[in-house]
């Protein structure tokens, strides 16, 4: 009787210990993984699923990077291989290890017509379906790898100097980046040629960023999630019939127009003590 009691006690203790250590391991492991996947400013290959989903579905095999570097168009004139666009994240890159990404200032995406990286993906983390045009053909112009953003204060075209490097480098010339002509009031006789990016066309290939002449590029590609805002369905263009249909999507009970400040009369605004 006593020995069976001891056995039971021992069994309970070992079970408890195993469960406890497993929980400890699980907490550490989850914590690490959660941090490891937080690499928001990373640019993925064409057709990549939304980042959260991509991080899981990508099986980290590297077939895309191998297809990218070994494509026919990636050879120098003497036949030697050039560096590929896609890199595989390794220790120290501060991205989820083993996932493909690219850095436009090093090697931008040259937008191959046959999209070898996406075609080869076995897990469909690079989703071919998102790269098909109306005729169900592969169309690299459908890619949405990121969005180019112009920093006006460092862009010399906004200073009034003549530069259209990004405009000329863009594979969707005069579509993804257009030039806005404005009069230079400072000189009175010159024009500004201002690059403007259109988010519905820009693929995020990064050729503009690579071409930019400033010390640190004044035009650069960010993941679309970070480069774009969203007006929401309760702001519609009343003069645009198509856009007005969006008003139907809004959820009235989710719209909150009352907050602490709106309970006061507008005239109180000027008399109110400033609170931060």
């Amino acid at each position: 009787m006593k020995s069976s009691n001891n056995n039971r006690r021992k069994f309970m203790a070992t079970t408890l210990q195993s469960v406890g250590l497993t929980a400890l391991g699980g907490l550490l492991w989850s914590g690490y993984c959660d941090e490891a996947k937080a690499s928001p400013l990373v640019l993925r290959p064409p057709g990549a699923l939304p980042e959260e989903q991509f991080l899981d579905v990508c099986i980290k095999c590297g077939l895309c990077a191998e297809a990218c570097v070994n494509r026919e168009s990636n050879k120098n004139k003497d036949g030697t291989q050039r560096e590929g666009t896609l890199k595989m994240a390794k220790g120290g890159d501060h991205k989820l290890i083993g996932t493909p990404y690219f850095i436009p200032t090093e090697v931008p995406c040259y937008m191959c017509d046959d999209i070898p990286c996406a075609v080869v993906c076995p897990s469909e983390a690079l989703d071919i379906k998102s790269l098909l045009n109306e005729k169900k053909e592969l169309d690299i112009n459908k890619a949405k790898m990121g969005l180019a953003v112009v920093h006006k204060e460092s862009c010399v075209a906004y200073w009034g100097l003549q530069c259209d490097a990004c405009y000329r480098a863009c594979p969707l010339l005069d579509e993804a980046i257009t030039l806005d002509y404005q009069k230079n009031e400072r000189t009175g006789k010159h024009a500004f040629l201002l690059p403007v990016v259109h988010s519905d066309v820009c693929t995020g290939c990064g050729l503009c960023e690579k071409a930019c002449i400033t010390e640190k590029p004044a035009i650069f590609v960010l993941p679309r999630e970070y480069a774009m805002g969203r007006a929401g369905d309760h702001y519609v263009k009343g003069w645009d019939k198509k856009d007005q249909q969006r008003a139907g999507n809004r959820k009235l009970d989710e719209i909150e127009t009352h907050d602490e400040r709106s309970q006061q009369a507008p005239s109180d605004y000027l008399n109110r003590e400033i609170e931060y």
Binding site: W29, S30, C33, A36, D56, K60
Partner: peptide
Amino acid sequence: VSAIVGIAAFEA
């Protein structure tokens, strides 16, 4: 852990 974090945990 994969189910909790949403990525292949051992692959990380």
